[in-house]
Computed example of a mutant assay.
Amino acid sequence: MALGPDRRYMTQTQADAAQIDEGLRKYMLGVYNYMALGVAFTGIVALFVASQPALLEAIALSPFRWVLFLGIIGFGFFAPRVMMSGSMAMAHGSFWIYAAMWGALMSPMFLLYTGDSMVRVFFITAAAFAGTSLYGYTTKRNLAPLGAFFMMATIGILVALLVNIFLLQSELFHLGLSIVVVLVFAGLTAYETQMIKNMYSEADGNEVATRKSIFGAFMLYGSFVTMFIWLLSIFGVARE
């Protein structure tokens, strides 16, 4: 039996939608896989640095930790431009350098917290990240208007952190700030996931798609690591 015009139209539309969905799934899977590799690389770097007493002391007790801190902030603002407009080697290199710097900065945590509590907090972070990222992927609500709010909140958190380190030195303030950071970056994860999803286009060539995947992984990686660090400050068990 021949299909009528409407039936043929719907069939073609459904086929096109299925093709887009499959491409989108592969694209998002690439983002998450790249991010997971970055997290694993950060852990390897942190463990390596923690096993080198001289290097660990230089990071934990010298001004070099501030060089790493400022470097991470700088990469957070400028690396995305390199990823989208520089060479592919620079795009890949920016991501791995960023992950290595985070690993070096986080290495003293292996001396501060018990291994069991770090593992437990890692899985808590993974569950929270998965839930908020899934929301960002599936929600029909436009989260774009929240982007400016999250940017201002991130700057405010950075200022509050520095004020507490150099002036207040309050454990209670640090605890309150930890809770705020986790909530802000949970929301930021949902916003970033939706933004990364909306960046997808089935017309992208291989290089453009790879750049977008690296950029997306970079954004989500930063939110994941930040959530982990601040959740660790709330739930981590200090070594005796």
Rank of each mutant, 00 (worst) to 15 (best):
A144M: 12
A104K: 01
A127K: 03
I73Y: 08
K197I: 08
Y27H: 06
A160K: 04
T42V: 02
G74L: 06
M195S: 10
T226D: 00
I44P: 03
Y27V: 01
L55V: 15
F149M: 13
P5A: 14
H92L: 08
Q169C: 04
A126K: 07
E202G: 12
A160L: 13
R120K: 14
N33W: 10
A2K: 15
T210N: 00
I165H: 14
I179E: 00
K140G: 15
S51Y: 02
S85I: 02
N33Y: 15
L143G: 04
R141P: 00
V82R: 13
G236Y: 02
D116Y: 03
D204R: 04
P5Q: 11
G76A: 05
T42H: 07
E192P: 00
R239F: 07
T138E: 15
L161Q: 09
A100E: 13
A186I: 09
G86T: 04
L177I: 13
N164T: 12
A148K: 11
R8K: 10
M84L: 15
V180H: 02
Q194F: 09
S62W: 10
P145A: 14
G176T: 08
L158V: 13
V159I: 14
T125R: 03
S94L: 11
L70F: 15
L47T: 10
S233F: 08
N33L: 14
G205R: 01
